[in-house]
């Protein structure tokens, strides 16, 4: 059977010796368990040698598994680095790609990151699972962490806990040191629901370096060094975010898909400014363009221009939404090209 390697799957394989050892140790343990449960036990008298043997055996067993860990640890260090591997050296600085003129030292920023325990709420690696979870919005398939990404890290603390989002591509998403500094000082200015503590106690230098570290995450070091600013993502209209939230909270999600898949109601994907065949209340069929006015009317009173081939099961939302909220819906639908 052919085994297809995904880019994030590790190339390291266990050697034959490992498998021989596994079988031997497994058989030994099984034999031991049978003996301990059903074998004949000798009288319980311990010589000093026996006592030393106990200690020695415990230590040997522990060191055995330690060696089993050291082998892949060594393997992992030999992996060729990927082009995007983080390889900032002490003393090296980068200029803020956001254009504020600030400069910071990513390596030292990493030390600040660790000294302040950022790692207890943020991870620094992207699982393949995370493409479909909400831990790292906007992550792309080729951004899933690979072994070669970490070769140059002086030490790694990839994190075991996420109370906040994953940060492995934060620099690609927000290549702006000024933003990161302001966010560290007052997180809720940007994310009203964030529970992150304020790090205003950090010195100016620490903040700059930490921001430089954050910017270095998810960007190819060569490009940052060359001053090629990563293209910042188009800043999203806050109304779109509002509309997306309403789409979930008001229950639209139950009947309308946003990815084109069929459901009880028509999908919103590609809806804006498309030609829609509708049935008027008097039974006549016609075609309209799904512009702002049409969408607004349809949300409030869907029966006014019922889309052909759909049942009129949508409740009236008359008076349910403010004008601002209706506009948020429309902006959201607009964004679903």
């Amino acid at each position: 059977m052919e085994h297809q390697h995904q880019p994030w799957q590790a190339p390291g394989e266990a050697s034959a010796i490992y498998w021989v050892l596994v079988v031997l140790v497994g058989a030994g343990l099984l034999a031991f368990m049978l003996w301990a449960l059903y074998g004949k036990l000798r009288p319980r008298r311990w010589t000093t040698t026996g006592y030393h043997a106990l200690g020695a055996l415990v230590i040997i067993m522990t060191l055995f598994t330690l060696v089993l860990y050291i082998i892949p640890a060594h393997q992992a260090q030999q992996i060729p680095p990927t082009a995007r591997a983080w390889d900032w050296k002490p003393g090296e600085t980068i200029k803020d790609p956001g254009g504020s003129g600030l400069e910071g030292e990513p390596y030292r920023g990493y030390l600040v990151y660790l000294a302040n325990g950022c790692t207890y709420c943020h991870s620094l690696y992207l699982r393949p699972e995370d493409l479909k979870t909400g831990w790292a919005e906007g992550a792309k398939l080729d951004e899933v962490s690979q072994m070669g990404d970490f070769v140059h890290y002086p030490f790694t603390m990839l994190g075991t806990q996420r109370d906040g989002p994953d940060l492995s591509i934060i620099g690609r998403k927000i290549p702006d040191m000024k933003y990161h500094i302001d966010h560290l000082v007052d997180p809720r200015k940007f994310k009203p629901k964030s529970v992150m503590p304020t790090y205003r106690y950090l010195s100016e230098r620490d903040l700059r370096d930490l921001a430089a570290f954050l910017v270095s995450l998810g960007n190819e070091p060569q490009k940052l060094r060359a001053g090629i600013a990563p293209t910042p993502p188009p800043t999203e209209d806050p109304r779109i975010a509002k509309g997306r939230e309403l789409y979930k909270s008001a229950g639209c999600v139950a009947c309308h898909s946003v990815d084109g898949s069929p459901n009880v109601g028509p999908t919103w994907k590609g809806l804006y400014e498309s030609a829609v065949a509708v049935v008027l209340p008097d039974g006549t069929e016609t075609t309209v363009i799904a512009d702002d006015a049409y969408l607004r009317e349809s949300i409030v009173q869907s029966a006014a221009k019922l889309v052909k081939n759909f049942q009129n099961v949508m409740p009236s939302y008359e008076g349910r939404f403010t004008d601002e909220e209706l506009q948020a819906f429309i902006e959201y639908i607009k964004s679903l090209r």
Binding site: L66, Q77, F150, M157
Partner: peptide
């Protein structure tokens, strides 16, 4: 663990953890 870097460092750390 101080003798390892990169992912190897994380693997030895996991042993301790």
């Amino acid at each position: 663990v101080l003798g390892f870097s990169g992912l190897g460092n994380q693997i030895i750390h996991a042993w301790w953890l």
